[in-house]
Simulated scan of single mutants.
Amino acid sequence: MDAVKWLEVVLDTNREELDGLCARLTANGVTGMAIEDEADFKSFLEQNRPYWDYVDDALLERMKGVCRVKLYVTDDADGRRQLEQWLEGVKTPYRAASLGENDWAHSWQKYYKPMSVGERLYIVPEWERDEPVPPGKAALYLNPGLTFGTGSHASTQLCLAGLERYAAPGKPVLDLGCGSGILSIAALVLGASRAAAVDIDPKAVDVAYENAAMNGIGRDRYTVRAGNVLSDPALVEELSTGDYALVLANIVADVIIPLSAQVHRFLAPGGVFLCSGIIDTRSGEVAAALERSGLECMEKREQNGWVAFAARVRQ
Rank of each mutant, 00 (worst) to 15 (best):
N211H: 00
C275D: 06
I200F: 10
I279A: 13
A253Q: 06
R219H: 15
S260C: 12
V255T: 09
L259F: 13
A287I: 11
N215I: 02
A226E: 05
V229A: 03
V224A: 05
V272E: 05
A226P: 05
V229K: 00
D199I: 01
F266H: 05
F266V: 08
D254S: 12
V247Y: 10
R265I: 08
A268I: 07
G227V: 01
I256N: 10
V236T: 00
A195R: 07
Y244V: 13
S231V: 00
G191P: 08
Q262N: 11
R282C: 06
I217W: 01
M214D: 03
S240P: 05
F273C: 10
A287V: 02
A234I: 03
K203F: 15
V272Q: 07
V198Y: 00
D232W: 12
I200A: 05
A287K: 10
V205T: 11
A213I: 15
L230P: 00
F266D: 03
V229P: 01
D280R: 08
R221W: 06
L239F: 09
E238L: 13
L259I: 05
A212R: 00
A253P: 06
H264F: 09
V198E: 07
N215V: 01
P202L: 04
N211S: 04
G277A: 11
A288H: 04
I251R: 15
N211I: 03
L274K: 04
L230G: 08
V236L: 08
T241E: 14
S193W: 02
T241F: 12
V272D: 00
G277P: 04
L246W: 03
I217Q: 03
T223A: 12
G284K: 09
V224M: 01
K203P: 13
V247K: 02
E237D: 10
G284L: 12
A212P: 14
I251E: 04
N228M: 08
T223P: 07
A261I: 08
D199M: 01
A268H: 11
S283T: 09
V207H: 06
A261F: 09
A245D: 07
R225C: 14
T281L: 14
R265T: 09
V286N: 07
A196V: 14
Y244M: 15
V272T: 01
Y222W: 15
D201H: 01
A212W: 00
I278Y: 15
R221Y: 05
I257H: 13
G271S: 04
P269A: 13
V229D: 12
A208T: 03
G270I: 04
S231E: 14
A192S: 09
I256W: 09
A288L: 07
S260D: 10
H264V: 12
Q262D: 01
T281Y: 09
D199Q: 09
F266N: 00
C275T: 04
V236R: 10
I279H: 05
V224R: 03
N211P: 06
E237H: 10
S260V: 10
F273M: 01
E238W: 13
A288N: 03
V205E: 07
D206P: 05
N211T: 06
D280N: 14
T281E: 13
A213D: 15
L235R: 02
Y209C: 04
R282D: 09
A288G: 13
A249K: 07
V207T: 05
D243K: 15
V224F: 08
L274T: 01
A261T: 14
I257A: 14
R221G: 03
A226F: 02
